[in-house]
């Protein structure tokens, strides 16, 4: 069978197969299993400690990476999906619904990619259209009305660049979400779980806490798009990824995210359950901090957080 994964993780995937085989075998030696696990984790830590920005981009886009619906099934109970923007249509690339998070009623909103080709096409590769953003906004408004926190999971290559999306006002839909989210009177917790693709990501990303998984990315433009425009050569994507500063640690250093969430050895796809536990714990901690604040204080803090973003100087002769 052909290897399915990224070049640099081939050895890890082989070890994970061995571990799985050892686990399922009734007469396997527990010491041997532990040695395999230790070997995997050590190698994973070693490899993942020196990933390039381009390799991180590939991990963020990994076909086996947990998606929004995976996180929903691992972290939420009683999820009921809410479809449609009540104006034009539904958008399967952006999933919304009511749910319980550790017993507490919340709404959860997230981009959804597909696993196989049929699903990918159905989900439009996780690229929402205006109706997706408008659906998300109406669900957030409902959360505000009933004083329920909003949890957003970001994982999109970007808002869909197509004729129909333009006709229905992709830009207006994104812009409106940015403005409305900034004034939402309930806590908003955002986790970038995979790809944070530009405005299409930010349109559900104006939160009181914005956290990012260790191997997720958040960028103003895809490395490929940036390379095509600035280098006039899409093959320069690797270089562009390096320059764009799209990795979690860089974003934290620039003050654009509040926290980086560690992933299990080998990345979130190596152990989705462990990744979900980290995400769940961070959401719970954020909510307990934010729910202590009055709505006025919450809004002030949210405003100040985004207000500070940006790096510039005062005139000096250049």
């Amino acid at each position: 069978m052909a290897f399915e994964g990224l070049d640099f993780e081939e050895a890890l995937v082989a070890l994970r197969k061995e571990i799985a085989a050892a686990r399922s075998s009734p007469d396997s030696d527990p010491d041997h299993l532990q040695r395999l696990v230790d070997q995997h984790d050590a190698l994973a830590r070693e490899l993942f400690s020196r990933l390039t920005a381009w390799q991180v981009t590939q991990v963020a886009r990994h076909a086996n990476r947990p998606y929004t619906l995976d996180y929903i099934s691992m972290l939420f109970e009683d999820f009921s999906e809410i479809h449609g923007d009540r104006s034009f249509g539904d958008d399967p690339a952006l999933v919304c619904g009511t749910a319980l998070f550790r017993g507490q009623p919340v709404v959860v909103i997230g981009h959804q990619k597909g696993r196989d080709m049929k699903q990918r096409i159905y989900r439009n590769f996780g690229q929402p259209k205006p109706e997706g953003y408008r659906k998300a906004l109406r669900v957030m408004k409902m959360a505000e009305k009933f004083a329920r926190p909003i949890i957003c999971l970001i994982d999109t290559p970007g808002a869909y660049p197509g004729i129909d999306a333009e006709e229905r006002g992709q830009a207006e839909a994104i812009a409106r979400n940015l403005r409305e989210m900034s004034a939402m009177r309930v806590p908003i917790v955002v986790v970038v779980t995979g790809e944070g693709g530009s405005g299409g990501a930010l349109a559900i990303g104006v939160g009181d806490r914005v956290m990012i998984l260790q191997n997720a990315i958040y960028s103003v433009i895809s490395p490929e798009g940036c390379a095509a425009i600035l280098w006039k050569d899409a093959r320069m994507a690797e270089t562009a990824a390096e320059k764009l500063g799209l990795t979690a640690s860089k974003l934290l250093a620039l003050g654009l995210v509040d926290a980086v969430l560690p992933e299990p050895p080998g990345g979130a796809h190596a152990d989705p359950q462990a990744a979900a536990e980290t995400v769940g714990a961070s959401i719970a901690k954020s909510l307990s901090e934010l729910q202590r604040l009055t709505p006025a204080k919450l809004l002030d803090q949210r405003y100040e957080k985004f207000r500070r973003m940006g790096v510039f100087t005062l005139a000096a002769e250049s």
């Binding site: 403005r179 930010l202 104006v206 960028s219 940036c226 600035l230 500063g245 654009l256 973003m309 940006g310």
Partner: peptide, 17 residues
């Protein structure tokens, strides 16, 4: 502006707020 990466992106949120 691509040359300022995600800092540019976040200006959209700052202004809209």
């Amino acid at each position: 502006r691509m040359m300022e990466g995600a800092l540019s992106l976040m200006q959209m949120a700052k202004i809209s707020a």
